[in-house]
């Protein structure tokens, strides 16, 4: 089915002319008010911590170095959580994006 005389395009043009279409809030923007953002940030920190703790515990069990790697990866997980939250607000968009 073709575009029916480009009606969609003409409609979009007309809407843009009258300024009816708001500029879309761009990529990476997630919905939700302050509660949503707060909850997301919390989840990011917790999940990074969980992964860090689990990795550290696993490596310790494997290498028999309890509790040193656990402690190291606890800190690493915390830093990764902070990084996640930082990326939540400043998504890295580099070349090709």
């Amino acid at each position: 089915m073709d575009k029916r005389d480009g009606f969609e395009d003409r409609l979009r043009e007309a809407r843009a002319r009258r300024g009816l279409d708001k500029a879309q809030p761009n990529r990476g923007s997630l919905p939700g008010g302050s509660w949503g953002i707060g909850f997301r940030a919390g989840v990011e920190v917790v999940s990074a911590l969980v992964v860090g703790i689990f990795l550290g515990w696993l490596l310790d069990r494997w290498l028999g170095t309890w509790p040193w790697l656990f402690l190291v990866f606890f800190v690493v997980g915390g830093v990764a959580g902070v990084m996640n939250v930082y990326r939540l607000f400043n998504p890295r968009r580099g070349a090709g994006g």
């Binding site: 989840v43 990011e44 917790v46 999940s47 990074a48 690493v76 990764a80 959580g81 990084m83 996640n84």
Partner: peptide
């Protein structure tokens, strides 16, 4: 830190 951050993606998605 980057590896943990990458691995935390599925965890945060699911949680």
């Amino acid at each position: 830190v980057e590896i943990v951050s990458y691995l935390s993606r599925p965890v945060s998605l699911s949680i």
